[in-house]
């Protein structure tokens, strides 16, 4: 059973990083910087629990806040460019963060053992969960509390004026600007919320893997952060969740019985999914159909 709980942990954290890219994508911005915010969160939370002896909750809060601060600081200059320029700027930023941690040493002796980040050798023994007797199920439930909160927050945004504003900017910047929306404020606020969610996800990641190193936060992770909302569709937060389940649950773990074919199919199925459902799993017609199916109020969104 622990295996399923563990898998649910992974899906939960990947959903978080997917959601962080989702809210930025709503404003029409493609950001590859999410892995950078994730890395910041991971190192901050890890250092706080291991080196400063903090409890997990304040440490995660700190990583979310720091993720938000970094994202906000990056958002101002970076969001001056858009489209593909932004993709590459954010990619460069994410790589910059990775390279920072690649060069980052801060070790403190604790109980005769040196702990803390050590450049390319990484940061080991972030064992808050096992040391405090948390079972795999406890950790999973803990993670899913945050996933649920983040999803609820974004879901609520979608139903509020703020969500409409985000989507308005995403659909047509010029039109949005001409009705008096402050583009910079909207985009930077989305980036900041995304940074907080990514930082939180990173903080959790550091604790369930117990060891982090710069190489885990590379372009591949940044691309996957984007892949979840794109594969899932921008119509609903549930799309991101579905896509994280599809990638981590199905492509990675579910196809294991295929042996060597699993890795080949991984890329191929992503290509196929985008060809079959270019607007993602949960696109507008599907969402509408689902709403009818469950007898919800159509047109509420």
């Amino acid at each position: 059973m622990d295996f399923y709980f563990g898998l649910a942990q992974i899906i939960g954290v990947h959903t978080l990083i997917g959601l962080s890219a989702y809210i930025v994508l709503l404003t029409g911005q493609v950001s590859l910087a999410q892995a950078g915010f994730f890395a910041v969160g991971a190192y901050v939370a890890g250092m706080l629990t291991v080196l400063a002896g903090w409890a997990i909750l304040p440490a995660l809060a700190a990583s979310a806040v720091l993720g938000a601060v970094v994202a906000c600081a990056v958002g101002f200059p970076a969001l001056r460019v858009k489209g593909l320029m932004l993709v590459i700027v954010t990619l460069a930023f994410g790589e910059g963060v990775r390279l920072f941690f690649f060069n980052f040493d801060y070790q403190v002796a604790k109980g005769g053992v040196k702990l803390g980040p050590l450049g390319s050798e990484g940061f080991r023994q972030i064992r808050y969960f096992p040391e405090n007797g948390w079972t795999t199920m406890d950790v999973m439930l803990f993670i899913w509390v945050f996933v649920t909160l983040a999803m609820a927050l974004l879901w609520w945004f979608d139903r509020s004026r703020y969500g409409a504003v985000l989507r308005a900017v995403g659909e047509d910047e010029l039109a949005a600007q001409s009705v008096g929306l402050n583009l910079t404020a909207v985009k930077v606020s989305a980036m900041t919320i995304g940074g907080a969610i990514a930082g939180l996800g990173g903080g959790i990641y550091a604790h369930y893997t117990t060891h982090i190193e710069h190489a885990s936060f590379g372009i591949l992770l940044a691309t996957f952060a984007l892949a979840y909302p794109i594969l899932g569709g921008l119509g609903s937060v549930f799309g991101t969740l579905l896509a994280a389940m599809f990638v981590q649950g199905f492509l990675v773990e579910g196809l294991r019985f295929l042996g060597d074919w699993r890795n080949l199919l991984f890329g191929a199925l992503i290509v196929l999914a985008m060809n079959v459902r270019p607007k993602g799993f949960l696109d507008a017609p599907t969402l509408l159909g689902l709403k009818r199916l469950f007898g919800g109020k159509s047109g509420a969104a």
Binding site: F246, G249, F257
Partner: peptide, 8 residues
């Protein structure tokens, strides 16, 4: 989804 769970 069902395949995934079956396979897992």
């Amino acid at each position: 989804v069902s395949l995934a769970f079956a396979a897992v």
